[in-house]
Amino acid sequence: MSKRNIASFLKGRVLFYGILLVAAAAILTYLFLREKPVEYYDRTEYYLGTYVTVRVGSKTLSPLVLADAAMKEIKRIDEKFGGRGSGTIAQLNATGQANDLDNETMFLIKSALKVAENTGGAFDPTLFTLTALWGFDYADSENRVPLDSEIVSALAKTGYRRVELDENNMAVRLPEGLTLDLGGIAKGYAVDLAIARIKSLDPQATGFIDAGGDIGVIGPKYGNRPWIVGIRDPRGNSVQDVVEYIYLYDGAVATSGDYERFFVVDGIRYHHILDPKTGSPSRSGAISATVINKSAMLADAYATAAFVMGKDPGITFLPRYGTLVFLVMEDRSTFKSPGFEVYQQK
């Protein structure tokens, strides 16, 4: 072997290992410096009669701070509007009159009445007397099928049209016996507010908030992917059985189903979504109604309305209010608002 050969052989080797070393260093530097994907932080707490989960990620702030701020907001709404309450609404119901209400309370009452109007009363925030009659008011109330006469007299104590709103004086008056119940929208409102709170701290934050199936999106997964939400199978053997998937980049979704709270007497299922016209569990043929709206509060209220309306022609008006509907009927057939399919594609 000549000297020159040895020299070129060594050169080749050095070059080879040199390239290998540089490549390794480059890969390591890249791995170290590349933008790390957002890590999501989950937090679950019990508010508004259900478990609320906040999943949030941020590039600039600690997700713990964001989740904490969101939970504080939800807790505040829970204390103000949730439960058996000693708050403004409870006082209004007790005395039939409330003056100098704050903007938030007025906004909630107005929103509830607006949805009632838009749905021809299919959603009605004044059904509490009926709800209590059927024992669906509190978790520990006893369920029973009331007599027809009881239903008729309870129906007389309902009707959203009879709520008198005086916006100039921020006052509300209820006629004798009428009870205002904001439970149907407070949960969604809390989700909306918590999202707004997170966005005020970090406009780029992503994630979602799930309050017992009312889901509001903070921002798309990792900034560019949709959150995949399963719609529960209303007759599934298990809660994790899903009939359909939707893909949400923003907005909110809520579902009302006859499986949430019900009791069975003589083989008949009596569920908690009452028809404001009959005063009995709604028999529209729908067993589950899922609604997509940009606001979780509205999604929540319209889902109840859609459940009560079923395939009634009125349901075709809901897209006008930014509401897309997916119904599962008793015979397991489904109904979709035109445009709903947009949310079924990634």
């Binding site: 017992g212 199936g213 719609i231 899922t290």
Partner: peptide
């Protein structure tokens, strides 16, 4: 699985799953 009166939640931690949440 959620029991509201007993304040108990049974959950299976998420790995790579088909969906992120369920509306119900």
């Amino acid at each position: 699985i959620v029991c509201v009166p007993n304040r108990v939640v049974i959950k299976i931690p998420a790995g790579d799953t088909q969906f992120d949440a369920i509306t119900q």
